[in-house]
Amino acid sequence: MKQLKIFSVPYLVWMLVFILVPLIMVAYFAFRTADGQWTIQNISDVGQYANIFVRSIWLALLATVICLVVAYPLAYALSRMEKHKQSTMLLIVMLPMWMNFLLRTYAWMTLLGNNGIINNLLGMIGLGPYKLINTSGAVVLGMVYNYLPFMILPLYSVMEKIDKSVIEAASDLGCNSRRVITRVVVPLSLPGITSGITMVFVPAISTFIISRMLGGGSNLLIGDLIEMQFLGNSYNPHLGAAISLVLMVIILLIMTVMNQFSPDDQVLI
């Protein structure tokens, strides 16, 4: 055991230097002015962007719920398949992730455009053109598409471990198939649900490239706002740090609430 502990030292050092120290710096920057005074002005300035926060949370929640609804039945079906089929299906789920994230989102721009493939196809049967891109719907679509595998994988890995005999036992003892799902499968897969939600919600709430490419720049999210502070015309890293800090606190709060739904001994963040 002791030897194993020694091997974890590199990561501990890594964590200290590249995670903990930067976090402290973010907090430090958030409470400083440009001329080196302590202040809470930055934090209170974040208040004026409340509507952007609300929109980000709302869109990220929407994307998470859609991901969950789509992924849950799929993950269940996947886990009940024969072993060799499972690996093929998993491969298909993973396949889009082999391609670069930017490229995938870029492809959606071509698909959804006013002169894009979808509108052209609809045009052939006399429909449209519809305004698909540059809407908040397109942003949610982009989030769902990009983060769906992150929901499927944890769900699948938990469900795969549910013993077939447990389900058979439930049926034997008189559960109909609906009750098997609600009383056995769902409670047993709760840890997968919570970690899946975390894996989708957290990147979705802080994304900026999806909203830039599919939202047409008029659907600002927090990520865009932060990016503007560091690389935009209003170079203000202090406000940017403050927004990031507030965002982190909000995510932490939401996650804490989330984790209360999973069994006490299996809290996963």
């Binding site: 004026q48 409340a50 509507n51 209003s234």
Partner: peptide, 28 residues
């Protein structure tokens, strides 16, 4: 430039001026 940036952000997120400033604190 700060004024310009603020006006710009305001303009870009103008759609939801209806959402109250209090929504966020209440949510928190």
């Amino acid at each position: 430039s700060k004024t310009m940036q603020d006006l710009w952000t305001q303009m870009k997120s103008a759609e939801d001026e209806t959402t109250s400033r209090w929504l966020m604190p209440v949510f928190l």
